[in-house]
């Protein structure tokens, strides 16, 4: 089976600082990969490169064999909208919107009816077990619930790959375990692939494969 995502010889420099050096990786469909490393090792930069949020200094990224590196910002945004889900340690939910509206947030620019948008968002909230909290604002939800809403948001466009940056970093261990279980469930049910950026051995241990970054290089 061909890889879902392939990164080849990625380099990223910020001025004189080389954040990522000759990093290559592959993620297969339905695979859960952990990217480990200490703070400052370049793992978050690597994740941003894979998401198209940063342009690499050199190297290329293939998604389903399409080279996304030459795409401009808008094309990358559309590519992300169709293929990538992002989950952050800090959740990054919109505080003024309800859980349901937060999940529907990536769909706002799409020309779809409000009812279809609501239907799709509600289905994702059900998938993460939070349909009953649809009308609650983030401030009324626990940390675990907020991360579930963020995962539902990442899933709303049915992406092939979810990039999660320290998804359990702000959660207690029991809630963190629940989130990791949810990832495995989603992999099983929907065939979604995951790249989990973490510095937590316990989190990494749940992955199919562990990659370790050090000083910008994948070991």
């Amino acid at each position: 089976m061909s890889d879902l995502l392939t990164a080849q010889s990625m380099h990223k420099s910020f001025g004189n600082v080389q954040a990522v050096r000759d990093a290559s990786l592959q993620i297969a469909p339905g695979e859960i990969v952990a990217l480990m490393g200490r703070s400052g090792s370049g793992k978050t930069t690597m994740m941003h490169l894979l998401a198209g949020l940063e342009k690499p200094t050199s190297g290329r990224i293939l998604y389903q064999e399409q080279d996304i590196t030459p795409l401009d910002e808008d094309a990358l945004a559309l590519w992300r909208r169709a293929n990538i889900g992002l989950v952050f340690q800090a959740f990054h939910l919109i505080p003024t919107l309800s859980a349901l509206e937060n999940v529907a947030f990536p769909l706002y620019p799409d020309k779809i009816s409000a009812s279809e948008r609501k239907e799709r968002a509600l289905a994702r909230l059900e998938q993460v077990g939070l349909a009953q909290r649809a009308d609650h604002q983030p401030s009324k939800l626990s940390g675990g619930e907020q991360q579930r809403v963020a995962i539902a948001r990442a899933l709303v466009n049915t992406p092939g790959l979810i990039l999660a940056d320290e998804p359990t970093g702000n959660l207690d261990s029991q809630t963190g375990d629940e989130i990791l279980n949810l990832f495995h469930e989603l992999r099983r049910e929907a065939g979604v692939s995951f790249l989990i950026v973490t510095h937590d051995d316990k989190v990494a241990a749940t992955a199919d494969r562990i990659l370790v970054m050090k000083d910008g290089e994948i070991q």
Binding site: A77, L78, R80, R81, I84, H92, I94, P106, P109
Partner: peptide
């Protein structure tokens, strides 16, 4: 700015954000 960054991250084009 974080909310706008999030718009970009979830796939809003720059023109979508400007229009909004």
């Amino acid at each position: 700015r974080r909310e706008i960054g999030m718009m970009r991250a979830v796939g809003w084009r720059r023109s979508d954000i400007i229009r909004y």
